[in-house]
Design a protein around this nucleic acid. Structure first.
Length: 457
RNA sequence: GUGGCUGUAGCUCAAUUGGUUAGAGCACCGGACUGUGGCUCCGGGGGUUGCGGGUUCAAUUCCCGUCAGUCACCCCA
């Protein structure tokens, strides 16, 4: 039995690596389109970077150890502290708003389950230095655009948004006291997964009247935003927060992602450093863990002592997202692809073929394979097909060769020096001449008069 | 960290209620096919049945432990 990687860690064979590259490609492409620039920091950090704000109990979830210099260190479990340090250190010099993103590999020492390993890659997107709600909309739009880029629709994924300031105002409005807010948040966070009696019990235990607990359930029960607004907008304390949420939703509509978004007051996020609008992305079937979560954390940078700047951001892990893409059949075919297989027609032409391969690689930037030992032509074409080659060059001698399209079984004889120099041309279906160049050979076959040439043409 | 379920080739699965030397398909390598591929046929490599112990004449099968996977809890990314 082969040795396995450590629990919760993954081997990326080429098929899995292509999936990973597919997801990361979408992340980077979308982030760049929104004007974000990429950064990175160390994967290993001093332990106290994480314990300073979160307390010592977090150590149980960290991949931490003492290094050979006696330093207490930890593999990074999240990117935000590193980001805060880096952005804070140069806060005065950076043009605001700062738009940065990163694709770190993060580590956490926890028992693994589906969608949760001890290591994962996460897209982190953050904006620093902007309090306007337009920044919140811009941020969520990035996350949703990634979904769209990967082929998902609003039928597959939904963004659930809330605002902690609004929720707080509404809770106070129904009679929840300041010191009960923490318990109220905790109960609301898991209200969908817990029986109502359990939630009520925890609220009553915290000193809340049963009538207020019922009102809390009523408040966060699923319903249309307009309805929620109509029921509560008359409260003065809530009015400004509703107005902000209105502008948030209007901006998201202008960004073309309104279909993906719905207000849901049960979204509070586990981390307590969030201060404003928060959101999570879920698969619409509700089968998987959250795909993405984030929000506004205006006081965190100041709390970490780096700079007093408003900020917001989200994290999107690769594990759940890839599971979802697999379930929906949206992962790319991992079969290999090769532009050319250069086949010596017989053993005496191996050096000539090797030279052709070299020119195609160097001059024409094609991906090229050729046999590394003497092989019959039949065997080679079999290998070429298995390698995913679209075209084969059968080298007869230093001058003569046949270019064969392996997908159409069509072929053309060429004079190697002229073909490699890009000087040959072929007549297309409409009678015009096309240059028959190595970098365009497959498209040239599209234009040939009869694409279904006989096998031994 | 706590509890339930599951571990047989790279993958998907067999092995008659404990019974010879643990099989098949796919994949991989070779051959039929000594100059034009995807088919077919033949052959080959690849397993300490996760690992360790116990019961038994005999264990892939039953029991215990352990490791790993998975689900729930916990926690959240």
């Amino acid at each position: 039995m082969a040795r396995n990687p450590l629990p919760g860690f993954r081997d990326f064979y080429p098929a899995e690596f292509s999936h990973r590259a597919h997801v990361m490609g979408a992340w980077r492409s979308v982030a760049h389109r929104f004007g974000f620039v990429e950064y990175d920091g160390p994967p290993l950090e001093p332990l106290d970077l994480y314990t300073r704000k979160s307390g010592a109990e977090i150590v149980g979830q960290l991949y931490n150890f003492e290094d050979k210099g006696g330093r207490e260190v930890a593999l990074r479990p999240e990117m935000t502290p590193t980001f805060a340090r880096m952005a804070g250190a140069r806060a005065n010099a950076l043009r605001k708003p700062v738009r940065w993103f990163s694709v770190p590999q993060l580590f956490r020492y926890e028992r693994q389950q589906r969608g949760r390993l001890r290591e994962h890659f996460q897209l982190n997107v953050d904006i620093v230095g902007e309090t306007d709600v337009a920044a919140d909309a811009e941020l969520l739009a990035v996350a949703i655009e990634v979904m769209r880029e990967l082929g998902l629709s609003s039928d597959d994924v939904q963004a659930r948004v809330s605002d902690r300031r609004l929720l707080t105002a509404l809770l106070i409005g129904i009679g929840v006291t300041e010191d009960q807010l923490g318990v109220a948040y905790a109960v609301i966070d898991k209200i969908e997964r817990e029986p109502r009696e359990v939630s009520t019990g925890r609220l009553v235990e915290a000193g809340m009247d049963r009538a207020i607990a019922d009102a809390l359930h009523e408040l966060v029960a699923p319903r249309a935003y307009a309805e929620l607004r109509a029921a509560h907008a008359h409260r003065a304390a809530a009015a400004e927060h509703f107005a902000r949420l209105d502008r948030y939703l209007e901006t998201l509509a202008a960004l073309g992602v309104a279909d993906w978004v719905r207000v849901d007051l049960t979204i509070v996020r586990g981390l307590d450093y969030y201060t404003g609008i928060v959101f999570e992305l879920f698969d619409a079937k509700g089968e998987l863990r959250a795909i993405c979560g984030g929000g506004r954390y205006d006081t965190l940078l100041a709390a970490l002592g780096d700079a007093d700047l408003p900020a917001l951001g989200f994290g999107m892990g690769d594990v759940v997202l890839t599971e979802l893409l697999r379930d929906r059949g949206l992962l790319p075919d991992p079969s290999p692809s090769l532009d050319y297989w250069v086949a010596p027609a017989d053993d005496s032409q191996r050096l000539a073929a090797t030279h052709v391969a070299s020119v195609l690689r160097r001059e024409w930037s094609r991906s090229v394979e050729y046999p590394l030992r003497a092989q019959s032509l039949g065997k080679q074409l079999k290998s070429a097909t298995a390698a995913g080659a679209r075209l084969a060059v059968i080298v007869h001698d230093a001058v003569h060769a046949t270019v064969r399209d392996l997908t159409r079984r069509a072929q053309c004889d060429v004079e190697l020096p002229r073909w490699l120099a890009g000087e040959m041309s072929v007549t297309t279906a409409d009678g015009s001449e096309l240059p028959f160049r190595p970098d365009a050979a497959d498209s040239v076959f599209d234009a040939l008069p009869d694409p279904s040439l006989p096998d031994n043409g």
